[in-house]
Amino acid sequence: MHNNNTIELLNIWLSLTKLQSNINDELEHALQENYSLSLNEFLVLYFLSQTEEKKLRLQHLQEMVGLSQSALSRLVVRMEAKSCGALQRHICEDDRRGIYTSMTDFGEKKF
């Protein structure tokens, strides 16, 4: 049987989860309305902007954003498309399996 302390901690955790979800929803709405960016697109641009060369390996970016490999790949492809043009894909010279993406000048302006 659950004691009162466990139930109280569970209620606090659920409240924090709901609060975080509400903040994410509001941020997503504001980004979409003002900049035509999803929250995940913003996070990709943010993490890239924090690097010296404005580029990251896709696998590292996937961990930072918290998306599955396929979801991040689809997101990056959309952001690389001619209709957006915020990112550019690169193959690692040292390790052909390594794929990087970097911000374009347009991506930096959009960010």
Rank of each mutant, 00 (worst) to 15 (best):
R74G: 12
H90G: 00
V76L: 14
H90V: 05
R74V: 15
D94E: 13
C84W: 03
S83W: 00
R96D: 11
R97K: 12
D94M: 05
L75S: 02
S70C: 04
Q69M: 09
K82P: 01
D95V: 08
L87T: 10
A81C: 03
Q69Y: 13
S83E: 13
C84P: 00
D95R: 00
S83M: 04
S68D: 11
E80G: 05
L72E: 04
G98T: 06
Q69E: 13
L72M: 06
R97E: 13
Q88N: 06
L75H: 02
H90K: 06
R97I: 07
S70G: 04
H90N: 03
D95N: 09
R89Q: 14
A71C: 07
K82Y: 00
E93C: 05
V77A: 14
S70F: 05
L75E: 08
A86Q: 01
C92A: 13
A86E: 04
G98L: 07
S70R: 13
G98E: 12
R74Y: 10
E80N: 12
G98N: 03
E93W: 02
V77E: 15
A81D: 15
H90L: 13
R89T: 15
V76C: 15
L87H: 03
D95E: 07
I99C: 09
G85H: 00
M79E: 11
L87P: 03
A71S: 15
G85R: 00
A71G: 05
L67D: 01
R89N: 13
R97S: 12
G98A: 12
C92R: 02
V76W: 08
V76G: 08
K82E: 13
L75V: 05
A81R: 02
I99Y: 10
I99V: 15
L67R: 02
H90T: 08
K82M: 03
I99D: 08
M79K: 03
R97W: 05
Q69W: 09
S68T: 15
R96M: 09
Q69T: 15
I99S: 10
L72W: 01
C84D: 07
E93N: 09
V77Q: 14
H90Y: 15
R97F: 10
S73H: 11
M79Q: 06
I99M: 12
S83N: 05
M79L: 12
R96N: 10
G98I: 06
R78F: 03
L75I: 04
Q69F: 11
C92L: 09
M79H: 03
R96S: 14
E80W: 01
I91R: 07
C84S: 10
V76S: 12
L67P: 11
I99L: 13
C84Q: 11
L87N: 04
S68F: 08
K82V: 02
L67E: 01
M79F: 06
H90I: 10
C84E: 12
M79N: 07
K82Q: 03
S73Y: 09
C92N: 14
L72V: 10
V76M: 10
A86T: 06
M79C: 05
L75P: 07
R96Y: 07
R96L: 14
R89F: 11
A71P: 07
R78G: 08
R78M: 09
S70H: 08
A81Y: 01
Q88H: 06
D95M: 01
V76H: 07
A86I: 05
G98Q: 08
S68A: 10
I99H: 12
E93H: 10
S70M: 09
R78P: 03
L72H: 02
R78K: 15
Q69N: 13
